[in-house]
Amino acid sequence: MISSAAVDALDGAMERLTDFLPGAFTRQGPKGGRLVCTGLPVALLNTVRTGPGQDPRETGSLAEELSATGLPWSMQVRGEADPELTTLAARFGLTSTTRLPLLAWDAASLPGLPAALPADGTVRKLSGEDSGRYSAALAAGFGMPGEIADAFALPALLDAPGMTAFTLDVAGEAVATGFNVLVGGHVGMFNGSVPPRHRGNGYYRALVTARLRDAVASGARHAVTQNSPMSRPLYESLGFRLVETWTYLTPAG
């Protein structure tokens, strides 16, 4: 039940994001397959979800549709990919593997969160007027190209109801970023980053806890996120727990 709710919440958050990204769309197949196209040149952000036992014809049809966009894309599998899925993915050149955890958090953990910010830190909630500033902070934190950072910082996204971009500022500089998407009683947590020169100072932890508190104040009772091996221990120390692991079959290299 927890797994299903967390997956539905993440799906809902991605649907909301694609509503505001130019050319983006999602599609649900009648037999459970799912296509997400953000329009961004990042394989993990354009996916066909499938799994063991899924109808291979539907998966193949969705894969053909996403492949035809010319964007980098991946096949997303809840759990491990079986030989049939691996063979299908290989037909499209998806021969590398990445695994990401899906973590979930319950607001019952809220009293245990650290409350204090670093003495020199200020949390800011951004609007569309801050688009350029947020884009620059994302580019610095992730080391991503400016055009991708710009897409995540579109004014329409920053001003959308239930979506909030955050920075943690020190001496006027953004030293951590984050983006919350409210979906019913859940919040999806995205775009958490810290520039390399500011890591190890507790800024990321401080902003994650501030974002959770803000989401709960806005009505969320659960949070979901997918993150890297570097940030997963931090989230688990704040009460997040593993729901399931997803396998992404991605282009070679």
Rank of each mutant, 00 (worst) to 15 (best):
S109G: 01
G200E: 03
V48Q: 07
R205V: 03
L17G: 04
T18N: 14
A136Y: 10
R199E: 02
F25D: 09
G188T: 07
Q226C: 12
W105R: 03
T50A: 09
A176M: 08
A160Y: 07
V181I: 05
A156K: 15
Q28L: 15
Y134P: 08
D19F: 11
A151L: 04
Q54G: 12
E244R: 11
A104S: 13
A223I: 11
T250Q: 10
T50K: 05
F166R: 02
S127D: 12
A176T: 09
G39T: 06
T50V: 09
D8Y: 06
V216A: 11
R27V: 11
V48Y: 01
V181P: 05
H198T: 05
M75T: 10
L234F: 07
L249D: 08
E173G: 03
G188N: 01
A119E: 06
D19K: 13
E84M: 12
S193D: 03
F166W: 08
D82Y: 11
T47G: 06
A13W: 06
P229D: 11
S193P: 01
N227R: 10
A171Q: 14
T18S: 11
S237H: 11
H222V: 13
S237D: 11
D82R: 07
L242P: 00
L113C: 02
R221G: 15
G70R: 10
L94V: 04
R221D: 13
S237Q: 13
R213A: 13
H222I: 09
V208M: 10
L35D: 02
G178D: 00
Y235Q: 15
A165T: 09
T98M: 15
A43D: 01
W73R: 00
L71N: 02
S135Y: 05
V181L: 08
A139C: 12
R197L: 12
G202Y: 04
K31T: 14
S61P: 04
S96D: 13
P30V: 07
A137M: 03
M230W: 05
G53D: 05
L44T: 10
H198P: 08
D169M: 03
L21S: 00
S96C: 08
V170Q: 00
A210M: 10
D214I: 09
H186S: 04
L234E: 06
A156M: 01
T225H: 02
P30Y: 03
P145V: 11
L138E: 05
L94A: 04
G162S: 00
T225M: 14
L21Y: 07
G79I: 01
R34T: 06
L234N: 07
A5F: 10
